[in-house]
């Protein structure tokens, strides 16, 4: 096969393979970006907190940032697959070139990976910082979460105890989580927070629910026979409803 190599090495971008790859890349990048983000966003539950909204936003951002890279790899694959292919028991003639290295390509690739890496890190650190600050939010309510094989129970400051979480909307809450036996993991699914419950230690997680509704707590660490059933609901209600529930509940608890 006569090679369609441009006359000088410097016009590498005019090579038909380069052009083909570029076109594939232009098609694949938005395709991957759109498919990837939709796949994630449509599967994930509607966010019930800013933290969860942030997680969904992060998925979008990272997917779009990754799509040109993935698209490039797939574009090169597509170019190779759509070039003349040889079948049969014997190999075709050797390829027309001995390109065994390209310091420029290497350098570019490594630099771009490093930049993307740095980008992901910085974005992650920013959000991490915000989540960390939430643990010291003023005006937060405190709820003690106790995990036990195989049920969660919750203790509120005024003495109310419950197997369901009731939370007021738009008020920060800090969970103090521990376990009475083995390791569990306290996952408030729609609010995007999770923290392990360890026996003998108390760990913390914080979130501000921003939507009224009923959500789920699921245990996310295998904790024995009935791990699958270690779940309960979270009711996020208006502040007034919450106060009423809290008062009723602590009265119930105080009965002897």
């Amino acid at each position: 096969m006569t090679d369609l190599m441009p006359p000088t090495k410097n016009k590498w971008w005019k090579h038909p393979d380069v052009k083909k790859t570029f076109i594939f890349w232009l098609i694949f990048t938005p395709a991957i970006g759109i498919f990837g983000t939709q796949f994630h966003v449509l599967s994930m539950p509607d966010p019930a907190s800013e933290v969860m909204g942030g997680v969904i936003g992060l998925m979008r951002l990272f997917t779009w940032a990754a799509s040109p890279v993935a698209a490039l790899v797939f574009a090169i694959c597509a170019t190779a697959i759509t070039s003349p292919r040889h079948y049969g028991d014997n190999p075709p003639a050797d390829a027309d070139h001995q390109i065994s290295n390209s310091p420029r390509a290497n350098a570019l690739w490594i630099v771009i990976s490093a930049v993307m890496c740095l980008f992901a890190l910085v974005v992650g650190l920013i959000v991490l910082q915000k989540d960390g600050d939430a643990l010291h939010e003023a005006g937060a309510i405190n709820v003690n979460v106790t995990g036990q094989q195989w049920a969660w129970n919750y203790d509120y400051a005024n003495g109310a105890r419950s197997e369901v979480l009731y939370l007021p909307v738009d008020v920060p809450v800090i969970f103090h989580i521990t376990s009475k036996d083995v390791k569990h993991s306290f996952w408030v699914v729609e609010m995007g927070i999770k923290m392990d419950a360890n026996p003998g230690y108390t760990t913390e997680a914080a979130v501000t629910p921003n939507k009224i509704g009923v959500f789920n707590v699921r245990c996310a660490e295998l904790c024995g026979l009935l791990h699958a059933y270690m779940q309960n609901k979270v009711h996020v209600v208006s502040k007034a409803d919450y106060e009423k529930w809290l008062a009723d509940r602590s009265a119930l608890e105080a009965r002897s």
């Binding site: 998925m59 992650g124 991490l128 999770k194």
Partner: peptide
């Protein structure tokens, strides 16, 4: 690998 996403 992103800690906040990993929380979910």
């Amino acid at each position: 690998s992103d800690v906040p996403a990993d929380a979910f």
